[in-house]
C-alpha cells in the first residue's frame, strides 16, 4: 500500500495562489461573503501562510501553502466522538460528512488549523453552478470539512490503471493543487517508493515538517533553506 505524501519546496513557491484556486474549484469549497469572512468563517482547504521578516529594504517574505498534513498520528481523529474523521485504508485522514455532528472538537485538536466549519448552507452564484465537480459531494450546513488529498482523483487513477491492466502509477494520481502549481514547487507521490521524486525530496537535508515536535508524523514536507528553520 502506497504511503501518499507531498513535498512543498518553499524556495520555489512564488505565492501565486494557483493551488488555492485549484483546490477551491476542484473540491466545491464554499464561497463565503466578505462580511462572513471577517467573522473568521472563511472556507479554505488550502491557504497560504504569509510571513514577512525584516525592515525595508531588507524584507524576506516566506509563503507556505497550508493544507491537511494527513498525519500518521492524527490528533483530530482521536477526539471525534462519532468516528466521522478517521484514518482510512489508504492511510489518508478522511472526513465523513453525513456522520459529522459538527461538534468541532477536531478543529480544536488540529495543530495546523486546516479544518473548516460550514456556518451556512452552500450557496452558489448561478454562473458558477455549472463549474461544480460532480465527483465531490457538497457539504451541508453544520459539518466540518477538510482537504482529502483529492481522494476522488485517487479513485479515478485506480480505475484507469485497472482498466489498462497495470499497477497504479504516480502519474495517475496527483491532487489538484500539485497539478496546478506553475512553479513546480509541489511534488506528490509514494513516500515508501525509494525511486519516487517525492520520497527522495522528503529525505533531503532541506526537508522539515510543520510542528514536528508534536509527534503527529505529518505526510506533508516542506523544503527550505537551512538558515531559515520553520
Amino acid at each position: 500500500m502506497a504511503r501518499w505524501g507531498m513535498v512543498i519546496d518553499l524556495d520555489r513557491c512564488t505565492g501565486c495562489g494557483a493551488c488555492v484556486a485549484a483546490c477551491k474549484v476542484e473540491n466545491n469549497v464554499q464561497v463565503v461573503s466578505p462580511a462572513e469572512g471577517e467573522r473568521g468563517r472563511r472556507m479554505h482547504w488550502l491557504r497560504l501562510l504569509v510571513e514577512a521578516r525584516g525592515e525595508y529594504p531588507h524584507v524576506e517574505v516566506r509563503i507556505a501553502p497550508n493544507l491537511c498534513m494527513m498525519c500518521e498520528n492524527p490528533p483530530c481523529t482521536k477526539v471525534c466522538p462519532v468516528h466521522a474523521t478517521y484514518r482510512g485504508e489508504d492511510g489518508l485522514v478522511g472526513q465523513i460528512y453525513p456522520r459529522c455532528i459538527g461538534c468541532r472538537y477536531c478543529m480544536a485538536a488540529c495543530p495546523y488549523s486546516v479544518k473548516a466549519f460550514n456556518w451556512g448552507s452552500p450557496e452558489w452564484p448561478e454562473a458558477l453552478l455549472s463549474t461544480l465537480n460532480p465527483d465531490v459531494s457538497m457539504r451541508p450546513k453544520g459539518v466540518v470539512e477538510k482537504c482529502t488529498f483529492c481522494y476522488h482523483r485517487l479513485q479515478l487513477g485506480r480505475e484507469k490503471a485497472r482498466a489498462e491492466g497495470r499497477p497504479l502509477r504516480e502519474s495517475d494520481y496527483q491532487p489538484a493543487c500539485v497539478h496546478s502549481c506553475p512553479a513546480d514547487a509541489m511534488t506528490f507521490g509514494d513516500l515508501d517508493d525509494a525511486l519516487s521524486p517525492a520520497a527522495q525530496l522528503s529525505r533531503s537535508t532541506r526537508a522539515t515538517r510543520a510542528l514536528e515536535h508534536l509527534g503527529t508524523e505529518p505526510r506533508v514536507f516542506y523544503l527550505e533553506k537551512r538558515d531559515a528553520p520553520l
Partner: peptide
Amino acid sequence: STDCLICHH
C-alpha cells in the same frame, strides 16, 4: 472495500 471514504468523499 468497506472504507467509508470509498463512497463518501
